[in-house]
Design a protein around this nucleic acid. Structure first.
Length: 573
DNA sequence: TTCCCTGGCGCG
DNA sequence: AAAGCGCGCCAGGGAA
């Protein structure tokens, strides 16, 4: 790149007739220059090492997966697809007309489950339906800058977009590195519970035994236990008049078939969700590599696709096992959502109850409720909008003790019921109500509306109220977690690489010698680190939590304490 | 045959 | 204990 000696803050990449082309853009948004890049991987690696710009691209996995595969990491990016979705809907953006018109940017992300990303290969079609021509990419970048410049609170939106984009980098890196998974330990666990692996189509011994006990007790040797209607009929025939076959319904009944049936369900679940088939499909070379989907949930939480990364069963945590000479650092945030609620509401009473201790214990100490269990279900009920049962009964006590926090969620619910939108701490805004929803509300207001019209409108309004009530808390918690991840990622990358690669490094070239994130689960991370860096990694997680709190809530006096464990496996007690 | 819905259960 | 938020996945079963 000739000319300017200024550090290029932004480098926008896309296709032109010359191939992959990079345009440097200054802080004012003006293009400085552009150049065609033949060897993208080598060039990005060199520029990153020299200047660490913010890479601007249409979609992170399309660009970053091949870079990671070649061992190249970048520190910062601006993911146009994710940023588009945030800006398009944000209440802070006063005029989103241009963004809403650019519907091609609403296209789905590239499907990273396909092997062999093709973006660098000009002869094949791109792996994503998103625009990738440099001029289109620059135009979208410009639209987003314009929207941001005019935004009511551009500071927080910039923070959100940076955090969201950092999350996209983390997601790609998590997949590239993988979660260390001991297939032999997993197999042993399955064999212990189910008996030895059966031939294809066969039923493992313990599953068969439980099934036989159920059929015995039901006096029906042929009944199918996997078909809900058939099972329900069989239960009714022997006098178990449960309304469904859910385990919490069944456990209410006293019949010899219940205990083996619950056992059968437990084993069948293990077999179908995380059995040998799952192991063969998802664990290769000692690594579980799920697909994370940043921004996949309306609230801003991540989703996952394939392998059920975000449902890692407690039962299987023992199979998560560090490589020889390495350890796992498992860190999770205690009571993230109620802390987030206290901080965003500025509720000093709730913050006092939470500071430096278990939040629920603090509520009990304060005399608001009698037991920790009560405090917990009351708090969940307040955030989820419970109206009945134990939870609904206990919420009023919280309302008296923590009026500011409760007013925040109550107001979010009211706005949602009225058809309005609500916004998280950093400016992510809930989607507006659907046409169907609005039509139902309008219908109920007409003079000839039926009882049914009215009750449906009320029910849908309350449903939406519970959604917006929870959106502000869950969404802000997701932002806290993104900020935590982003900062932690940087701290881990700054640790020195270990001098000798592990005997058989399996984490991909970019991670074989570095402490790296290996799992993210809403309020928990697992770090895979060389044993000698375990303490440093744990320390980094704690410090990153403090940074995240400061970033979102400034000096509000509330901590976000972490539970940190250093061990060979990810087993929880 | 394929597609979509439901029930059920795992996770936060 | 099973009400109240957000997900993904599996199996069965009916629709297309």
């Amino acid at each position: 790149m000739a000319g300017s000696d200024r550090t290029p803050t932004w480098i926008v990449v896309g296709r032109t007739a010359e191939g992959i082309t990079a345009a440097r853009v200054d802080d004012a948004g003006a293009e400085i220059d552009r150049r065609a890049v033949a060897d993208v991987t080598a060039w990005v690696g060199a520029v990153e090492a020299a200047a660490a710009p913010r890479w601007v691209w249409n979609d992170t996995p399309s660009w970053y997966d091949p870079l990671l595969a070649a061992g190249v990491r970048v520190s910062r990016c601006h993911d146009l697809r994710l940023s588009h979705a945030i800006l398009r809907d944000s209440a802070d953006v006063t005029d989103a007309t241009a963004l809403r018109a650019a519907t091609e940017w609403d296209a789905a992300a590239s499907d990273t489950t396909d092997v062999a990303p093709t973006l660098f290969d000009l002869d094949t079609t791109p792996g994503s339906a998103l625009p990738d021509a440099l001029d289109d990419v620059l135009a979208e970048f410009h639209r987003q800058r314009t929207a941001l410049d005019a935004a009511g609170d551009r500071g927080r939106l910039r923070l959100l977009i940076a955090a969201e984009s950092a999350g996209a980098l983390v997601a790609a890196e998590l997949r590239a590195a993988g979660l260390p998974w001991d297939a032999a330990a997993h197999d042993a666990l399955l064999t212990e519970a189910l008996g030895p692996q059966s031939a294809p189509g066969g039923v493992p011994r313990e599953l068969e035994r439980a099934a036989a006990r159920v059929r015995d007790a039901l006096g029906d040797p042929g009944v199918s236990l996997d078909s809900q209607p058939k099972l329900l009929r069989a239960l009714h025939r022997v006098g178990v008049l449960a309304p469904s076959t859910s385990k919490w319904e069944l456990s209410e009944y006293d019949h010899p078939a219940i205990e083996p049936l619950l056992e059968y369900k437990r084993l069948a679940r293990l077999m179908s969700a995380n059995g040998w088939a799952w192991l063969a499909e998802w664990v290769h070379d000692g690594r579980f590599r799920p697909v994370y989907v940043p921004g996949g949930v309306v609230t801003g939480r991540w989703a996952s696709s394939g392998g059920g990364a975000l449902q890692l069963p407690r039962q299987l945590r023992g199979a998560v096992r560090a490589d020889p000479g390495w350890v796992l650092v498992v860190a999770d945030v205690a009571q993230l959502e109620p802390r987030v609620l206290a901080a965003m509401a500025g509720d000093t009473a709730l913050a006092d109850a939470a500071r430096g201790r278990d939040l629920y214990a603090g509520i009990v100490e304060r005399g608001t409720l009698q037991t920790r269990a009560e405090a917990k279900i009351a708090m969940l009920g307040a955030m989820y909008g419970a109206t009945t049962g134990d939870s609904g009964r206990l919420v009023p006590a919280l309302r008296r003790s923590f009026p500011r926090a409760m007013a925040l969620v109550d107001e979010a619910a009211r706005v949602g019921e009225d058809g309005g939108v609500v916004t998280t701490r950093l400016g992510r805004t809930s989607p507006p109500p659907s046409m169907q929803w609005r039509a139902a509300q309008a219908r109920a207001g007409e003079p000839d509306a039926t009882e049914g019209d009215e009750s449906r409108a009320r029910r849908w309004a309350r449903d939406r109220g519970r959604f917006t009530r929870n959106f502000v808390v869950q969404g802000t918690a997701a932002e806290w977690a993104l900020a935590w991840l982003a900062d932690l990622r940087g701290r881990l990358a700054a640790l020195p690489p270990v001098s000798e690669p592990d005997a058989a490094p399996r984490s991909g070239t970019a991670f074989a010698r570095h402490a790296h994130l290996a799992l993210f689960l809403h309020d928990e991370v697992i770090i895979h680190a060389p044993a000698g860096q375990a303490d440093a990694a744990a320390h980094a997680a704690v410090e990153a939590a403090q940074t995240a709190a400061r970033l979102l809530f400034g000096t509000f006096p509330l901590d976000f304490p972490l539970d940190v464990r250093i061990a060979a496996t990810a087993q929880k007690d």
